[in-house]
């Protein structure tokens, strides 16, 4: 076991846990944002550098601080380690830089992007980026590519997180796509536009943090915040059949995996569930799906809202007196 303190909050975790995992155990307040790490995919993480943190004390044995910021998703904890995330100016500064780099070639075509509203890059830039851009150079430009009948790759939006490559590697067989070219010319490609022929290939859409990989059966049908997510299930011979159906009225516009509070799917689902099962009668609806608070979708409806308690006159105290007492 190792005791680790992140932003002043201490937790004891098993050896081999990463700083990021420990931070997530403590809670969202101290958890660094991630764009490429995905707990369900092996060897993911380390690329985007948004989860950089400062290790101000290496361990109980060797208290020296680490000389550079480290990627929390790929650095394991040591007993007695002290980490600064939001409390470190160096981290905030570096993270702001990373956001700027990620947006440098990102088209910011959110108004016409299907991912808008559930885009991790939107959230990241809102929370950690600046309001202004400092570049007026032309952005890189790619043609849109159809990857099979169901998935479209819009490389302009890609931030090269490698998640889809890991999905193809780890949960589908016969990987035919990867990264070609180098540096800022690098692109996700299927080598001469080979279709991904696989029962689970649609999961590349769910893991994509931006709108680079989108569901062709849903493209331009609706803004996500106008649809209503409901947990549903069915008997599926291929996968668990546990999904979220996104409805407009009674019509199911799209089907996705169920996502946890970190925006990661709980279970990967098969292509039949995702793309071909869109009749309401195919599904047993369980109830409204929980949508993370920070998403714009949560601003709409669902779940039981707690009514704010009305204060009685005795509970209202003048603010000025409070301040004097403090």
């Amino acid at each position: 076991m190792a005791k680790i303190t992140i932003d002043g909050k201490t937790i004891e975790v098993a050896d081999g846990t990463t700083i990021l995992q420990a931070a997530r155990m403590i809670g969202p307040d101290v958890a660094p944002p991630t764009m490429c790490y995905y707990s369900k995919l092996k060897t993911s993480g380390g690329y985007c550098r948004t989860c950089l943190v400062e290790v101000s004390k290496g361990s109980e044995k060797d208290p020296r601080p680490m000389p550079k910021l480290v990627a929390s998703c790929r650095t394991t904890v040591m007993d007695g380690m002290e980490v600064k995330n939001n409390t470190s100016e160096k981290v905030t500064d570096a993270r702001k830089g990373v956001v700027e780099f990620l947006l440098l070639n990102h088209p910011l075509d959110c108004p016409v992007c299907d991912q808008a509203g559930e885009c991790h890059l939107q959230d990241l830039s809102y929370e950690h980026g600046s309001a202004k851009t400092r570049t007026d150079f032309e952005r890189r430009n790619f043609e849109k590519i159809d990857i099979g009948n169901y998935v479209q790759l819009h490389m302009n939006r890609c931030i090269l997180c490698y998640r889809c490559v890991k999905v193809a590697d780890q949960i589908t067989d016969g990987r035919v796509h990867g990264v070609i070219n180098r540096g800022d010319h690098a692109e996700i490609s299927t080598y001469i536009e080979n279709a991904i022929e696989n029962d689970f290939s649609g999961n590349v859409i769910d893991v994509c943090p931006v709108g680079a990989l989108t569901d062709k059966t849903f493209r331009f049908k609706s803004r996500v915040w106008f649809t209503k997510p409901e947990n549903a299930h069915r008997d599926c011979p291929t996968c668990s059949g546990k999904v979220v159906v996104w409805k407009k009225g009674d019509e199911i516009l799209r089907v996705t995996g169920r996502k946890d509070q970190w925006g990661e799917v709980e279970e990967f689902i098969c292509n039949t569930c995702r793309f071909e099962t869109k009749k309401a009668s195919d599904w047993t609806i369980e109830g409204p799906a929980h949508v993370n608070k920070h998403s714009v979708i949560s601003a709409n409806h669902y779940e039981v809202l707690e009514k704010p308690q009305e204060l009685t006159i005795n509970q209202i105290r003048p603010i000025a007196i409070d301040q004097q007492n403090d």
Binding site: Y47, G183, D184, H185
Partner: peptide
Amino acid sequence: YHHESCGQCSPCREGTAWMEK
């Protein structure tokens, strides 16, 4: 350096190109 960046991590991939421009 822009030409030789492997493109894995964002600061190098984007930053080297930006500096060249």
